[in-house]
Amino acid sequence: MLLDFDRLGWLRYALCLVAVLVGLFLLLPILLIVALSFGSSQWLQFPPPAWTLKWYGQLFADPEWLTSFFVSLRIALTVMVLSTVIGLMASFGLTRGRFPGRELVRALFLTPMVLPVVVLAVALYALFLRIQLNGTFIGFVIAHLVVALPFAIISICNALERFDIAIEDAAIICGASPLEAKLRVTIPSIRLGVFGAAIFSFLASWDEVVIAIFMASPDLQTLPVRIFSTLRQDLSPVIAAVSSILVGFTAVLMLLAAFLRKDKPS
């Protein structure tokens, strides 16, 4: 009865009330940013006195924002490709391998995800000071790869563990070499997990801010770093415009993920 919605009595109304309030709590701030990005008030009045596109105009007129956007995009795309490929190999090794210490390696692969990012950020910053990778494209890629890899490995390992290895055996018996069987049968079969790994890896890099704050140089700033340093000075509505674009970006990725999931053969 505690799990039957129609027989919860007054509890039902209490649950509904909390659910609605939490839903609004989660949703309204996001809608608010989007609304404010079109509002004319420099001081972010709500409701806005008038509607305008001038903040977007300012944003696109500022080459620094555009540069940061493309820096972030380049880093995130590179990380996405590398993380997916390395994660794919590692996942095959983890699920199929029989080497000693395999569980330890698996644990190590997931650790960057559970440790406080600030520790990794400071540690990498120190290392990169020594080998002069701070403020470089390669430095960003390496750092974000460390953060992204666990997500890729989890996503692909999950898919690989659900994949029946007998199918790959069948491909080999059919005459495909072990590598050919993986490329033509196994990887296409677990493509949802691979796409998931790619999306998560992209987002892990795209949204990463803590490490980037340490590593950024005036010449090479990712979008989150620029937002962060701007926010430390003032709450310009331009940020609302950037944020709205990011929200739109997220919504597109979510739709893509939902679409992929629907495409999945049952």
């Binding site: 029946d164 007998a166 199918i167 055996d169 069948a170 491909a171 080999i172 018996i173 059919c174 005459g175 495909a176 070499s177 072990p178 069987a181 049968v185 296409p188 079969s189 493509r191 053969p265």
Partner: peptide, 20 residues
């Protein structure tokens, strides 16, 4: 001779059609 060169046919206990 590796399995893929043995030119043997096999049907498995589990369904092993390539799902894609």
């Amino acid at each position: 001779v590796p399995s893929n060169k043995r030119n043997i046919g096999m049907v498995f206990q589990r369904y092993t059609l390539f799902p894609h």
